[in-house]
């Protein structure tokens, strides 16, 4: 199901080929056109001649630091959204990146599902100002006011359940491992997870509440592995 009115244009700046291919692959059957370049030089050419909805930017590139692209965007007065994807995990780099105009920072390694919902969130923030809605058939989520409606009727969901719902819908038709879901739900605390059993409880509650509100059952269980949001 198409979440956007038109196709989103993405630019991936990443020198690790296998990672780039995987990201392209994962994003491909969604609503994105994802172009891939390997260095600052090519990236600069691309951003000069095109506007992107989102740029996925690695920092350590063969011909320099990815921050140069952020400066280039700034000097060209471009408003492309930028998500930094970097192996560097320290506060200074993160702060510097955000100060230079990046919108988000994702540390390698990450789950592709996590990257996808971050891209979606960024595009929502940029394109649908004031009216940040996610719709899926009978379900409607107002991301800002945290209100979920099924067939126009408000469903009482907890904060965690809303986060889970957005994550599942965002990764429609994709198998999500319990670990990936648990990490997404835990946010900053993802590294501290000891077990993922709590995911089951949240899924069960969400399923139950949506069913009571009259929604179809879109959450499929992949035995022993995780879950998938799927409309059959």
């Amino acid at each position: 199901m198409n979440l956007y009115i038109w196709q989103m244009k993405l630019l991936l700046v990443e020198d690790e080929k296998e990672l780039a291919v995987s990201i392209q692959d994962y994003l491909a059957n969604n609503d994105f056109i994802c172009e891939w370049v390997m260095d600052i030089h090519q990236a600069t050419d691309k951003i000069t001649s095109h506007d992107y909805d989102c740029i996925l930017l690695d920092l350590s590139l063969p011909d320099g630091n990815g921050f140069e692209i952020l400066r280039e965007l700034k000097s060209q007065n471009k408003t492309d959204g930028v998500i930094i994807i970097s192996a560097k995990e320290n506060l200074e780099t993160r702060i510097e990146g955000l100060q230079l105009g990046a919108d988000d920072y994702l540390t390698k390694p990450f789950h592709l599902s996590e990257l996808l919902v971050r891209i979606q969130a960024l595009i929502r923030r940029k394109n649908f100002n004031g009216n940040n809605l996610v719709r899926y058939h009978e379900i409607e989520i107002d991301v800002l006011s945290k209100v979920v409606k099924v067939n126009g009727k408000i469903v009482d969901l907890t904060k965690k359940e809303i986060i889970l719902l957005l994550y599942l819908i965002g990764n429609e038709n994709r198998v999500l491992s319990k670990a990936a879901i648990a990490e997404h739900l835990s946010g900053d605390m993802a590294d501290m997870l000891i077990n993922h059993d709590f995911v089951y409880a949240h899924i069960k509650n969400l399923k139950h509440k949506l069913k009571l509100a009259g929604s179809n059952n879109y959450i499929k269980t992949i035995y022993g592995t995780g879950y998938k949001w799927h409309n059959d």
């Binding site: 296998e18 995987s22 692959d25 192996a87 560097k88 540390t107 390694p109 789950h111 592709l112 198998v175």
Partner: peptide, 19 residues
């Protein structure tokens, strides 16, 4: 630090494999 990137590939490939 150097392990982070191959790990990212590893994780991404597993995520893809699930699909």
């Amino acid at each position: 630090h150097e392990l982070q990137t191959p790990l990212a590939v590893f994780q991404a490939k597993i995520d893809l494999l699930y699909q």
